[in-house]
Nucleic acid binder design. Sequence first.
RNA 1: GCCGCCGUGGCGGAAUUGGCAUACGCACGACACUUAAAAUGUCGCGCCCAAAAGGCAUGUGGGUUCAACUCCCACCGGCGGCACCA
Length: 811
Amino acid sequence: MEHYDHEKIEKKWQKYWEEHLELFAADDESDSEKQYILDMFPYPSADGLHAGHVESYSATDIISRYLRLRGKNVIHPQGWDAFGLPAENFAIKTKTHPSLTTQKSIATFKRQMKILGLSYDWSREVDSSSREYYKWTQWFFLLLYKNGLAYRGKGKVNWCLKCQTVLANEQAEGGVCDRCDTQVFQKDLEQWFFKITDFIEKKDKTRGLLGGLDDIDWPEHTKAAQKNWIGKSEGAEFEMEIKNSNLKIEVFTTRLDTVFGMTFALIAPEHELVQKLKQQIANWDEVEKYIEQASKKSELQRIAEEKEKTGVELEGIKIINPFTKKEIPLFTSDFVLGHYGKGAVMAVPGHDCRDYAFAKKFGLPIAEVIKSKDGKSSIEKEAFVDDGILSNSREYDHMTSEEARKRLAEWLEKNKIGRKTVNYKIRDWLVSRQRYWGAPIPIIYCDACGTVPVPEEDLPVLLPDDVNFMPHGESPLAGSKKFQDVKCPKCGAKARRESDTMDTFVCSSWYYFRYADPHNKKEFAAKDKIKKWLPVDLYVGGAEHTVLHLLYSRFFTKVLHNLELIDFDEPFLKLRHQGTVLAEDGRKMSKSLGNVINPDDVVAKYGADALRMFEMFMGPLEDMKKWDTKGIIGIYRFLDKVWKIKSKVQISNIKSNPESKIRTFLHKTIKKVTEDIEKLRFNTAISALMIFLNEAEKEQIPQEFFEKFLILLSPFAPHMAEELWSQLGHKKSVFTEKWPEYDKDIVKDEMIELVIQINGKLRDKISVPADISEDDAKSQALASEKIKTFLAGQEPKKVFFVKGRLMNIVI
RNA sequence: GCCGCCGUGGCGGAAUUGGCAUACGCACGACACUUAAAAUGUCGCGCCCAAAAGGCAUGUGGGUUCAACUCCCACCGGCGGCACCA
């Protein structure tokens, strides 16, 4: 018998679906319950779809098709995260304009999505590099600006002297430029920032970025990563006097309980106080040299040199510990970060590893002020960093660390030199990029009026075409006269445009709103459309976005909520990450290793239905998995069997025998597949379909049953389901059908195999009615020959009975 | 270092959330069909034992329980995130 012709069938139905867009379109008018099923919109690379894309898109396609069959009004859109550095680099390499290469890549992606039979509502497609889209990205910038959430500030960035450009952190690994291998320097540049730090904690109407995490169904590790990134730490800050100076030094600590062990203090090299103390520093030349060296190092380098602490004493400077009134020295060291806390710390070498290492290297005293509860702790070889009981701390002796922190903070407040406080690792979001392929920042600089936002009616600020996007020292947009020279919108004088573009993460922070109303020319999306479709019910995408994109999107949503433009606070109610699909050799798929699986090839050989289903069958959605070229044959055989079993179907309208085994089986399968899809457990749903088919092969099954099976199969293998459905004489698509319901009474077994254990070990199984009573089960069990042998005449001490499951006899 | 996740046959994985460990699939073996191969079908497939009976098995060691892959503790191994954050 012939195998099924996947190519012919798939082409036929893909064409049919193109002609019947209403099958998968989200209906703005319908009153039925909406479901927003979203894929992270891809960056359209020249390489085409990756096996990982196929995995997540198949998953959301299954869910979307399933929900539509359940009568839900599903919105399942797709679009393109089209701006970004890879396109620009590719453009530089090939000397082609990035819009050309991007459009070509989009065409490839879209073609591949279509041959996979993905049921997107293409009428809602968005492209973040289109002027219709980035007009609203710019509008969002202005919205933030007008509400004091976008500001211009100085920030340290990685700067390559040779390429004359700013580099992203990931392009400056090891402190060396990615492109030319020369050293990267830290440079202070004025940049645009978004005030994401304003939204860490509850603010007016919204729960903060921290608190909001409690309300959403996200993977634990993703929530943990976001919390980690925000890096909240509670402690205290206080000021210390500098001897013979009216200046003061402020420090932050989480271990106020250890203050009596402070034997010196540390300050970041870039701290302004160092400059202010210049006159009093005896060894200024040495200090200046150290500061110079430190500024040349990138943060990455500082970390790489972790093994050895460096630093210089600010000779002539003495700090007064406010608790002990003792004088201590001040050092500057690059392991103290200027941007965190107060940029200066109290050093307690006895109870902090870094301070310990520093004290050892510079021969500074180490004091012990905390003992472990058992009194056995020692600071001889290393710092004791745990909480414990205070000692050598005057009236605070014998207190626990926790209590001492409370009391010491009270003392600080009473004496007005400090207070309890909270610090965060997260910094404001730097959104300026000195790049071409992004959305221009809609700002104009005027000598008279200063920083002037572009009026909304002038948006979009178009990305100019007449620029040299090769790296040449400044933002490529600065090279376009046409772009640069403008009139000030306020006074009409000659002015200059901001020449930086926005980080592509700005574009991707709001795209899920646009799908609700993609062609709106007056708003980023109309209020009623947003109300209808958002928030997103299920969001599926790669785990590489655990922090950046997902955090930024939450920030945008919170901004909109706070401004009362939307009535929800979290954009993505349920989030799942698809696991990485590794190459067959267990390594990451990469072009250079030549181990990439191209979906086109697999579709050509086995068909889209087989590829989609196989990727779902490989394992749980979120698990990392290895591609297995041989494995797909199993799914192919299954589909082939479905194809062939059609000829065995009893085509008649006779009533199915209510007692028939296959009926019970069908209902169990409906139950299992339904529940598994709801839980995104596609691997076991597919296995249930296989089990049903294996059973069905053994006998003739009524058409009515086979049809229900086809509906169950349709979200997984839509082409085959459509084809067989039409071959059975149906005129309309299988996707206009209703998802089958199972009958609770049919699913329930009448007779069950009751497991009989003795002392927890399986000894026999007896066939009994499902609702058998304990007494009846016991007498039947004890009557079993096998059980009699094992009991050997002994009386059971106790009998445990789990209804419908098992009986455990303890002797 | 801190945080999070994971460890089950030759392989991918399943196990109703504490109740028959290894469903489903791959690979492998035997047989059937075939001139032959492929395809397809039937059967077998954790380990020990010739087999039956039985025993042993979910990274390792302990604990709780009538009962542990599942819960608790310790250790070993792997993956991911953050990382000189005071």
